[in-house]
Computed example of a mutant assay.
Amino acid sequence: MDVDTARDSRFYAELKRELLAALPELGIDKLGIASCEPFVALKDRLLRHRELGYESGFEEPDLDKRTDPSLLFDRPQSMISIAIAYPSKLSNAPKSEPGARRGILARASWGEDYHKVLRDRMERLERWLRERVPEVRTENMVDTGALSDRAVAERAGIGWSAKNCCIITPEFGSWVYLGEMLTNLPLPPDTPITDQCGSCTKCIDACPTGALVGPGQLNSSLCISFITQTKGFVEDQVMRKIGNRLYGCDTCQIVCPVNKGKNWTHQHELQPDPEVVKPLLVPLLTIGNKEFKHQYGHTSSAWRGKKPIQRNAVIALGNFREESAVPDLISVLLQDPRPVLRGTAGWALGRIGTPEALRALEQAAGREMDEEALAMIRRALQQDNSAPEDAAQGKGHA
């Protein structure tokens, strides 16, 4: 069904004005309108990105679908981009200290899963539009849609596409979740915001692994946020740079001058539980599926299951060189059924380097059957821990 052609541009301009006034009741912090022409320049960048091997593998593989709204929706007339602000500071954060070391989840996974929150806001928006234009057609996308959230948001004037590959809004900084709606309503488009990064390169300079290979250019395979979500073995030097991160990485946003002092607490579903987002590490080593689902199932960090978070907890204990965790790490090394966890525990014990840890590594080296885990254990027995501690180890985290 198409919209009533008798409605003129003044109707849709007024509809947009009413919509912007209704944003607080819809729970939306910012909204912009974009036209539906193909993203030609973006497609060229994505092709180059693919040629360089910078993709994460989580993206929609069809570049035409990522850049042409008409392939996803019958005769689209406009795209609505929304932004919801989330918190950047943790109130009453528990201390991470010897004997009680803690990890940290990235801010984008604090509170309730943002996919659910954004879908709720999109549904509110859709109902609002349908009450006023019954024949409206819509297609909502949240993070996992084919289109680039950032490209739509940039065209819709939500913010500019920054050097750290985030959308930065003048009002909320980059602490925003993005979603978009394709529609058959010919709403008047907004004007994109001029890039305001200027000559600043703080995000590029601060990236722990050099994953920001240029302004707005990310090598996903080096990005700690991506690496913490993988399930396999991680290279030694990368593990040292992971620090105590359990899921995601906020460094490039923390150092951004635009984000300084910005913290948003008005979206109640997104407020964090300090014990969930900054948990004790040792209990994570043996957390069961039921307990993991109870503690993390409502967050976006749970989508890959418990194994990556458990592996990252092992890495964090190694980076802390937490001697009190040696018995727990030895249990993982000798008893865990998963080779990645056994090998990573060997790395962590090698980092800690106490006599008890080294004896366990010797024992494991004589019984480990998995080739990759065994290689990791053998390297742990030979590793040099004299290198200076990585500056990213917990720095800048809550």
Rank of each mutant, 00 (worst) to 15 (best):
Thr286Ile: 05
Ala325Asn: 07
Leu317Ser: 01
Leu341Thr: 08
Lys306Ser: 15
Leu349Met: 09
Gly346Tyr: 13
Pro339Ile: 08
Ser301Lys: 05
Lys307Ser: 11
Arg304Leu: 04
Ala357His: 07
Leu333Cys: 11
His294Ala: 15
Glu322Lys: 03
Lys306Val: 14
Pro337Met: 07
Gly353Phe: 05
Leu333Gly: 03
Leu333Ser: 11
Leu285Asp: 00
Leu329Met: 10
Lys290Pro: 00
Thr286Gly: 10
Ala313Thr: 02
Gly350Pro: 08
Pro327Asn: 02
Val277Asp: 03
Leu334Arg: 09
Pro355Lys: 06
Pro327Ser: 04
Arg311Leu: 04
Asp328Ile: 00
Ile315Trp: 01
Leu285Cys: 01
Ser301Gly: 04
Trp303Asp: 06
Gln310Leu: 10
Arg342Val: 09
Lys290Ile: 06
Ile352Ser: 06
Leu329Val: 11
Phe292Ser: 04
Pro308His: 11
Ala348Trp: 07
Ile330Phe: 01
Arg304Ile: 01
Gly288Leu: 09
Gln335Ala: 13
Pro308Val: 02
Pro279Gly: 02
Ile315Gly: 02
Pro337Thr: 10
Leu280Val: 06
Gly353His: 05
Ala348Leu: 03
Trp303Asn: 00
Glu323Ser: 08
Asn289His: 15
Gly350Val: 06
Ile309Met: 14
Leu281Tyr: 05
His294Gln: 14
Arg351Val: 08
Lys290Gly: 09
Arg351Trp: 11
Arg359Leu: 13
Ala316Pro: 07
Glu356Ala: 13
Gly353Gln: 09
Gly318Arg: 02
Gly350His: 10
Glu323Pro: 09
